[in-house]
C-alpha cells in the first residue's frame, strides 16, 4: 500500500506562498493598452500642437470632428486603464500592510475611473454642443 504524499490539497499548499491573486489579465492588458497608447499619444502630441494655438473656439471646433472626439476618448480610456495598472504595481511593490494597500488600490481605481468618466463626458459635451451656443 502506497503512503499518500500529503493529505493537503494543492490549494492548501499554495496558500500563503505567493501572490496568486490574478492571472495573466494584468500582463496582457498592460501590453495591449501600451500598444494602443504608442499611436494614441503620437496623435495626442500632434493634436496638442494644433489645438494649443487655436483658442476656445478653435478647440471647440476641433472637437466637433467625431474623429478627433472619438480618438481623444480612446486616448483617455487607454491612458487611465494603463495608468491604473501601472500605479497598481507600484502600490503592490511598496505598500505592504493589508489596509493601506487595499485603500491605496481603491483610491487608484476611483481616481482613474472617475477622471476618465468626467473627462470623456466633457469631451462629448463639447463634441455635441451647437457651435455659437456655448
Amino acid at each position: 500500500m502506497t503512503q499518500p504524499k500529503s493529505y493537503r490539497t494543492p490549494l492548501g499548499r499554495a496558500r500563503g506562498l505567493g501572490a496568486a491573486h490574478h492571472g495573466v489579465g494584468h500582463f496582457i492588458g498592460q501590453r495591449a493598452s501600451a500598444a494602443a497608447l504608442l499611436f494614441l499619444l503620437l496623435w495626442g502630441v500632434w493634436s496638442a500642437l494644433t489645438v494649443a494655438s487655436a483658442g476656445y473656439d478653435g478647440a471647440v471646433g476641433w472637437l466637433h470632428s467625431p474623429v478627433n472626439a472619438g480618438i481623444l476618448v480612446l486616448l483617455l480610456g487607454a491612458a487611465f486603464y494603463h495608468g491604473r495598472l501601472g500605479v497598481q504595481v507600484i502600490i503592490e511593490d511598496y505598500v505592504h500592510t493589508a489596509l493601506a494597500k487595499t485603500l491605496s488600490l481603491l483610491v487608484n481605481t476611483f481616481v482613474c475611473f472617475g477622471a476618465f468618466v468626467i473627462a470623456a463626458l466633457s469631451v462629448l459635451k463639447v463634441a455635441f454642443s451647437v457651435i455659437g451656443a456655448a
Partner: peptide
C-alpha cells in the same frame, strides 16, 4: 515617467473640464 504621465492625464482631464465649462 509613468507616474508623471498619470498626473499628466489628470491635467488633460482638467483641460477637458475647462473646455466643457465655457470660454
Amino acid at each position: 515617467t509613468g507616474v508623471g504621465m498619470y498626473l499628466g492625464a489628470l491635467i488633460l482631464t482638467g483641460w477637458a473640464i475647462a473646455l466643457a465649462s465655457g470660454p
